[in-house]
Design a protein around this nucleic acid. Structure first.
Lengths: 174, 174
DNA sequence: ATACAGCCATTAGGCTTCTAAGTATTATTC
DNA sequence: GAATAATACTTAGAAGCCTAATGGCTGTAT
């Protein structure tokens, strides 16, 4: 309906913001995310760490000894994903599983010295990638961009919540 | 460390842009992308189309009859990924493979009427998702955000290119 | 104390993407 | 025109993420 054709152009953004997000910002978000992930991956892979492990290590550097469920929530991934990641990290000697003695359902994850030591190596990698990424961008613009993204994130999460609350498969969009 | 703790706040961005990108913009980019993808996925899944197919359909609506390699380049994915996607789309009757008579190495992909018809159903879904995503965002801010993302994308791609040219595994970042 | 319900971790299986290796066709070179 | 190189698609196998179903432990109510 409101979509005015499919021709993409930088100009279109100023002319038709809504259509352009679909054609432009969405694409940009996707590509930007992939580029950032690829760059970081290239850096940390040098030290034997995969992206799948990176997020969990970050969470543990901040809060060691989390349970797997807590870890999942911090990182924003489902629990089976966490299990897989922990498995590989345990296998590589970055973390140790410890059954919680007070509640034997829980498993707390603790960094090994090796896992903790990675922080001083990996964090600078991330900072370096970030530095490169934002070269030539004015800090105020960076703030603006972050605000926009935060707003969009909120909008979409709100939408998902309400959609799930009502019927999950209707489409009276027209 | 430059990163001022793990507590995230909008303020930190203004104070320490570089560290904040790592902790903030990177995370935001990742979450934003995932939220957008999830929302769109929920919409188009209603019509039997997966995200894996969506990108290729978009490219074909714009340019029907592309070869698989061209399609891969348009969409930004590797060729084996394209093969898989085309397989499933062909199986569902959205596209048809046609060996190119002039160069029998090539395979041109053509939309079926069914695949072409999806455009009128799916594009509005994307527009709707985009509309929801940018609610409450001022168009100028949207433009700024897109510019920032574009700049970052360029920075990262440039970096990847030069890194590949030089040595691929040193880390004197400190 | 026993049964029922809820919480936590795991397993099973699918989807999407990637890299690396293989096959078929066309172009180039001697 | 036969050997070699380049091009286009395909197959094989791995990583990361997801949903759904399973198994163990805990807490509560009968």
């Amino acid at each position: 309906m409101t979509a005015s054709k499919g021709h993409e152009s930088a100009v279109a953004l100023a002319v038709d913001p809504v259509g352009a997000v679909d054609a432009g910002l969405g694409h940009l978000l996707r590509e930007g995310h992939r580029a950032l992930a690829r760059s970081l991956q290239a850096q940390i892979a040098t030290h034997g760490v995969s992206m799948g492990q990176w997020f969990f290590l970050r969470a543990l550097w901040d809060e060691d000894g989390l349970t797997q469920r807590e870890l999942s929530q911090r990182v924003g991934m489902m629990e089976p994903t966490t299990v897989t990641a922990i498995n590989s990290m345990e296998h590589r000697g970055f973390v140790r599983r410890m059954r919680n003695p007070h509640d034997r359902r829980k498993v707390n994850i603790f960094l090994t010295p090796k896992g903790r030591a990675l922080k001083d190596v990996l964090l600078p990698c991330a900072v370096e990638v970030a530095r490169i990424a934002v070269q030539g961008v004015q800090p105020p613009d960076l703030v603006k961009a972050a605000q926009v993204l935060r707003q969009m994130l909120g909008n979409l999460e709100g939408q998902m919540a309400t959609t799930l609350g009502t019927a999950a498969g209707h489409d009276e969009i027209d």
